[in-house]
Amino acid sequence: MKEMTYSEAIRLAMTEEMRKDENIFIIGEDIGIYGGTFGVTKGMIDEFGEERIKDAPISEAAIVGAAAGAAVTGMRPIVELPFLDFITIGMDALVNQAAKMRYMFGGNEKVPMVVRLPGGSGTGAAAQHSQNLEAWFCHVPGLKVVAPSTPNDAKGLLKSSIRDDNPVVFIESKLLYNTTGMVEEDPEFTIPLGKADIKLEGSDISLITYGRMLKKALIVAKELAKENIYIEVIDLRTLAPLDKDTIIQSVKKTGRAIIVHEAVKTGGFGGEIVATIAESDAFDFLKAPIIRIAGVDIPIPHNKELEKAAVPSEKDIKAGIYRLLNK
């Protein structure tokens, strides 16, 4: 294990896979010498050249669509968009084309591509550069959706995503890029898609989260342990396919569930987790209603204090937990 940032872990995952398989290339805006909007691909052009670290025109529809076209003809493209928000321009290519090609052509084709999207707020870039739209992608059968929260998960999950034969939407939380953690160095280390990870075991409450909110959840859980409240923190890591089993088993054990995500509450992925619990036999174990702590239903504002108030804070999470315990 070696300490590195989330950003370095993503770069390492791509570098290792590209060394192994010459069909992999990266296509995106300003990913070459510039190194990408958040510097994730910095330096990769030196090793792989501009043919495989492909700076594209500012054309998200063509970038995502070309990736699909390359994928069905033998390549394994990785798309990097500057901001998750810009996928709206490439949505036809992703939703109507890449996600559908296998099914609507009778299962004859594979579409191995990864679309890396830096998401989330916290940079002051306001409403068009800060969204968390993962629920949209989860609503499209044919797509896989991954949202890692630690450098090690980012590396292992990205490698699995690159090796997967389906279109994978890989959501990177931009506020995590500079966070550090211990990362497996073995080039054959991967983390399978569709497996949640229990980041902290506990007996009183199941806290289900993913992405940037994991850190806040763990801080809250550690604080509350001092009050003898033991929270089990589940990091979903992959949203589609969803590891329902881990969620259900945990809720059966604790009898209480709280879901925390950065995305806005209405229509958010948290609703799907609530339904997963409510439709399962874990329902009979519930001692209290399920609670969602999520983003406020607004576009992200620019002002720093307003921006902070738009997403769940540690205080919000703690308040939710007290509510769950009738405290």
């Binding site: 070309a66 990736a67 076209g69 033998g74 109507n96």
Partner: peptide, 25 residues
């Protein structure tokens, strides 16, 4: 034949990507 398409304009980028494969390989 990479397929007909129900979306008007849906094939442009797919064709472009397929051509990128031909060039890269």
């Amino acid at each position: 034949h990479l397929g007909s398409n129900g979306v008007v304009g849906g094939g442009f980028a797919i064709a472009t990507g397929a051509a990128l494969t031909q060039k890269m390989k």
